[in-house]
Design a protein around this nucleic acid. Structure first.
Length: 674
DNA sequence: CTTTCAGACCTTTTT
DNA sequence: GGTCTGAAAG
């Protein structure tokens, strides 16, 4: 897979050295080690303060581009150097990629020991913990992780069984139901309250919806399924109920660091408190003005209230920015200045720059795309590498037109965020087969793979599934006969294939190979763009081949799927392609030149945010995050006269977040037909 | 029972 | 542009 520049990977090449500070070498308490790293020269005063405090609660409020990652990396290195065993450090980050990148950089400072630090997301940590100790709260260790789509499928199944999909009832759809349930769980609030506040149109169905939620919970439990929320919920349960185990885990993870704390939700915050409440060696890093995940239950108050939850907490604020030139920061600050609640933060830098950010109005979307493509080509002529250029959008579909234009112009790009490779039907099909092998009571996967077969519909699938559940049908040669009786020859062949890939000793690669041979003809029968999809299946095989065990492969596919879509992109040289990304996926990253597209009121802020002040504020922070990704050059564009089907309005006003930026801070241009 | 087809619907962001 | 649903044909 192609990967994108890791967070802050260019720290070392930035234009300005941090302020120098004289530093005295002294012997530390830990195991007779000495400073080997010239921290004083590499870090500014605030960063150094954060790095030096190894014990006790610590909150670092670090604005965009202030070297947050660098601080974390150095602190990990400093801890290891002072004799703290790396395996007692737990580094929780927003994506696994960022924790890997941090540990890689720490390893450059103190050697391979840094790789022994436990690093990952809350969800991956929960996954490992529950696989190991979940038995104590009645979980089977081979549970299947449901991603969002899977969870929706289960809900839909139950909804159908209950007859709640009757006509005229206008019962919420599966994705709405899933987000209702999730909101209730992640915010630790009763479902009724969520319904009343956010879905008043469904409040009348509260009873049925609650009933369905209960059924969903029961169903997951019976069939060994855990959705994303369950991973957190069950971890909390485990830590709360099993006090001895909690003590053991707390001893094991004596030092906890959490990145992007503003984007933690109530459950994650609770996990931190449970795990770190005793030893209190907890460091939280974050920036309240970059909180952009409240739709997922994140609550930036977790970071604000951190000092209250950990009394005696040291608070370090870092405001000097090393990433962007001052004119870009001026615009970023201006975006925040319009906020309803004020953020007590004002970024500054010593990086002066001549070039002001540019705001460009385009006559329509096509011109916007053409303009960006042309400008990219010019920049490349001027010596800006493609990998130093990014286009950021509010929603992933907003880059479709540009992608066509870039293809036409022969400009290679990688796209992050939005629809993923893993979410395509054919890849999900492959995964469903493997899941059934791992967890035969995974009914949703059974359903999925059975319905692929000719002559098998919901009814037949249900019969086969029932036979599996009550033990009549097991994987194994005898099962094939039963399968034939139940659903005919195709079912028999399916069971034969599942049998063939069941043996424990088989490698993941071997299993996927066998599965591909079985699945390819089915794929051909189902889709006319068969060849394109077959390529994805091959790609899937390549990824699978890197894994040693089936469970770890499946967990990873659910928790940390390859984030890029590979459609339309042949593998190119990694450093010679530009990036297209959603703003959410661009979190923590930086580029020399950043384009922000569709800064059009109704698209950004999204029209869905218009009704709620909180939602609007989050959109504003999103714009702030987007602008602060740019190091030297920021170009904001918007098309005008766009018809919005949903509202029936014509959108032609620039985003309210940039409309008020004074002309001294940004240049304004218009792109129109000649 | 399954398959097929036409019309409705709806579209953020992600672990 | 895609998914989802309902209804009728196979």
């Amino acid at each position: 897979m192609k990967t994108l520049p890791a967070p802050d990977s260019n720290d070392d090449e930035r234009g300005l050295t941090p302020p120098r500070r004289r530093f005295v070498l002294k012997r530390s308490e830990g195991a007779g080690s000495v400073f080997k790293i010239p921290y004083g020269e590499e870090l500014n005063a605030a960063q150094l303060a954060a790095v030096e405090q190894l014990e006790g609660p610590l909150l670092v409020v670090a604005g965009a581009g202030t070297g947050k990652t660098r601080t974390l990396v150095y602190r990990v290195a400093r801890m290891i150097e002072s004799g703290i065993p790396p395996e007692s450090i737990l580094l929780l980050t927003f994506t696994r990629r960022s924790s890997q990148e941090m540990l890689r950089r720490a390893a450059l400072l103190v050697g391979a020991r840094a790789e022994q630090v436990t690093g990952g997301t809350f969800h991956s940590f929960a996954n490992l913990t529950l696989r190991q100790y979940g038995g104590t709260i009645g979980l089977n260790s081979n549970f299947t992780i449901l991603d969002q789509g899977d969870a929706e499928d289960v809900i839909n199944l139950l909804r159908g069984q209950r007859g709640l999909d009757a006509r005229g009832m206008r019962f919420p759809r599966k994705n709405t139901l899933a987000s209702m349930f999730s909101a209730s769980i992640n915010r630790l609030r009763p479902l009724v309250e969520i319904l009343d506040e956010e879905y008043p149109q469904y409040a009348r169905l509260a009873e049925e919806i609650e009933e369905l939620a209960r059924a969903y919970r029961a169903y997951k439990r019976i069939h060994g399924l855990l959705d994303y929320d369950d991973l957190l919920v069950e971890s909390v349960t485990l830590l709360e109920e099993q006090t001895e185990l909690r003590a053991r885990l707390a001893r094991k993870h004596r030092y906890i660091m959490v990145d992007e704390y503003q984007d933690t939700n109530a459950l994650q915050h609770r996990i931190v408190k449970l795990l770190g409440g005793e030893h209190r060696n907890v460091m939280a890093v974050g920036d309240d003005s970059q909180s952009i995940y409240s739709f997922r239950g994140a609550d930036f108050r977790n970071i604000m209230e951190f000092p209250r939850d950990f009394p005696g907490c040291t608070v370090v604020t870092i405001e000097e920015n090393y990433r962007s030139v001052q004119p870009i920061l001026d615009v970023a600050n201006e975006v925040l200045a319009g906020a309803a609640v004020s953020y007590e933060k004002h970024l500054y830098t010593r990086r002066t720059g001549e070039e002001k950010p540019v705001i460009i109005s385009c006559a329509d979307e096509a011109l916007q795309s053409q303009f960006v493509a042309q400008r990219v080509l010019e920049l490349r002529e001027e010596g800006v590498e493609l990998k130093e250029i990014a286009v950021l959008v509010r929603s992933s579909y907003l880059s479709f037109d540009l992608e066509i234009e870039l293809n036409r112009a022969g400009i290679p790009y990688a796209k992050m965020g939005g629809f993923k490779f893993i979410e395509t039907a054919h890849v999900k099909d492959m995964i469903a087969h493997l899941r059934v092998v791992q967890n035969p009571s995974d009914v949703v996967s059974w359903n999925r793979i059975l319905l692929l077969l000719p002559g098998v519909g919901p009814r037949t699938a249900q019969r086969v599934v029932d036979a599996v559940l009550n033990g009549q049908l097991r994987l194994g040669a005898a099962g094939e006969e039963t399968g034939k009786a139940l659903g005919g020859e195709p079912v028999q062949r399916l069971l034969a294939t599942l049998n063939a890939i069941s043996p424990e000793r088989m490698t993941v690669a071997e299993r996927v190979d066998t599965l591909t041979q079985y699945y390819s003809p089915i794929l051909r029968g189902h889709y006319d763009d068969y060849t394109k999809r077959l390529k994805d299946v091959e790609m899937f095989g390549e990824i699978a081949a890197r894994y040693r065990s089936l469970p770890s492969f499946l967990s990873d596919m659910a928790l940390e799927p390859p984030s890029e879509s590979i459609v339309g992109m042949e593998s190119g040289a990694e450093d010679e392609q530009m990036t297209i990304s959603t703003i959410h996926s661009a979190k923590g990253l930086e580029w020399n030149t950043v384009f922000i597209l569709w800064a059009l009121d109704g698209r950004f802020p999204s029209i869905h945010a218009a009704s709620s002040l909180d939602a609007l504020e989050e959109e504003r922070r999103l714009m702030y995050v987007a602008t602060t990704r740019a190091k030297d050059r920021l170009i904001i564009t918007y098309p005008i006269n766009i018809f919005d089907r949903e509202s029936g309005m014509v959108l032609s006003k620039p985003s309210r977040f940039i409309a008020g930026i004074p002309d001294e801070l940004a240049e304004r241009w218009v792109v129109a037909d000649e």
